[in-house]
Design a binder for these strands. Sequence first.
DNA 1: GTTTAAAGTACGCAATTAGCGAATTACATA
DNA 2: TATGTAATTCGCTAATTGCGTACTTTAAAC
Lengths: 110, 110
Amino acid sequence: MNLDRLSELRKNKNWSLQDTADRLGIAKSTYAGYESGYRRPSFEALIMLADLFGTSCDDLLGRHYEKKMELTEQGNTKLTVDQRELTEKEISGAVAFIRVTRQMEEEQAL
Amino acid sequence: MNLDRLSELRKNKNWSLQDTADRLGIAKSTYAGYESGYRRPSFEALIMLADLFGTSCDDLLGRHYEKKMELTEQGNTKLTVDQRELTEKEISGAVAFIRVTRQMEEEQAL
DNA sequence: GTTTAAAGTACGCAATTAGCGAATTACATA
DNA sequence: TATGTAATTCGCTAATTGCGTACTTTAAAC
């Protein structure tokens, strides 16, 4: 298992290996090792990488973990519409809307 | 950084260290090391742990990673209402509902 | 209270591996 | 071609993993 996404993420930012290593506070050869698959980061380094590139550890590890999330309990996730965060009121409104929609679907099916 | 959640997750399932190690195909002392913080899993083992306990690697690593997610682009996340997965139609309906709500709020503010 | 089996903890050893620096190679651009 | 930056590779050392084994604790049965 290699960290295949690293190279892509770094290039999207137009950073050299040295740039990236400097931001992480590690040696260039160390970071280069992560990208090439020659070495692996410690957990601390993995988390620094995820923070730096704004993604999840699961993503870096290539784990496509599918999650179910109840609309009323989003935990750490902030939902947006048109890039604007949803308020509590908007969420409960949307939930009510969906329930009504379903109700109508069911009645129509009879 | 220790994997503090492991013990909790295991106990929720009422498994012994041996049970858990068997499910993972590793030695009891190895798994016990993960819980105690004496040893750390490899990435492969970390992913097995996340799979076994049905959670994310970020969660196991204690990384509370806050994510913004556009309602129309949920990626790996399946949204539910009343435990039932949202359809495309329900999502676009909810988005339309939210836009209208916002529109009305704005007009009211004038 | 004693016995016994399972659960949990701790550690030595062998083998592997991370991280670094240094050296080498590739790639621009003047 | 010359020159500076980027990328790759590798030897060395220190640190770490995973396992087996042994030890301690817990709890249930008698």
